[in-house]
């Protein structure tokens, strides 16, 4: 800019000097202020300023301010909305976690219950079986004993009958029975 000013000054001087030298310079000197133009410029500018201030700058600057406020408000709103959403999300997440835990708990409780029940039933069944088995065994043993006794009695009676027939005489029932039974017991032992 500095160079430009210097050179333009030179140029101005170079161009105007012959004109000024020619004598008609008074009205052709661009450096000489003209009061009329100055006054008109001032009047024009001030009028323009007053009109523009009223009809252009006021509304335009107001609109700019209003837009700025609107945008700021919107951003604030968006921020608070987001925070709220974040909070809700956190809440939901914790709810889900809680639900999962509860489900797992319920599941494990059920499982344990089932296990326990199974064990109980199993044990009960086992006990019952054992008991039945024992009962049956005892019954069978008693039956066997009974059968033995019956067999022995029958055998003794048969033997006595046979002996009676062989000897032709009736043995004294009681004493001979004892004899046979002793014998039979001896047989059994051996």
């Amino acid at each position: 800019m500095q160079f430009r000013l210097i050179f333009s000054g030179l140029l101005l001087f170079g161009l105007s000097s012959p004109v000024l030298a020619a004598g008609g310079g008074g009205s052709m000197n661009p450096l000489k202020p003209v009061m009329g133009t100055l006054v008109w410029t001032a009047v024009t500018f001030v009028l323009l300023l007053i009109i523009l201030r009223r009809y252009a700058w006021g509304p335009l600057l107001g609109a700019l301010d209003q837009r700025q406020r609107t945008i700021e408000g919107d951003i604030e709103q968006a921020k608070s909305d987001r925070e709220e959403a974040q909070k809700l999300l956190e809440e939901h997440k914790s709810l889900v976690v809680q639900a999962r835990r509860e489900r797992a708990e319920a599941l494990s409780v059920g499982q344990q219950e089932g296990e326990r029940l199974k064990a109980d039933i199993l044990q009960q069944a086992t006990e019952e079986r054992e008991q039945r088995l024992k009962q049956t065994e005892e019954q069978v043993k008693a039956e066997i004993r009974q059968a033995n006794d019956d067999l022995r009695a029958t055998t003794a009676a048969l033997a006595i009958n046979a002996a009676e027939k062989l000897l032709g005489k009736t043995l004294d029932d009681a004493s001979h029975r004892k004899l046979v039974e002793d014998h039979l017991a001896q047989l059994e032992r051996s």
């Binding site: 024009t44 323009l48 009109i51 009809y55 252009a56 700058w57 509304p59 609109a63 609107t70």
Partner: peptide, 18 residues
């Protein structure tokens, strides 16, 4: 000045719109 009035007031006329 006329140009400025035309353009600037023209621009300001719809300043109610966001």
């Amino acid at each position: 000045s006329a140009l400025l009035l035309f353009f600037l007031i023209g621009a300001a006329r719809k300043s109610g719109q966001l």
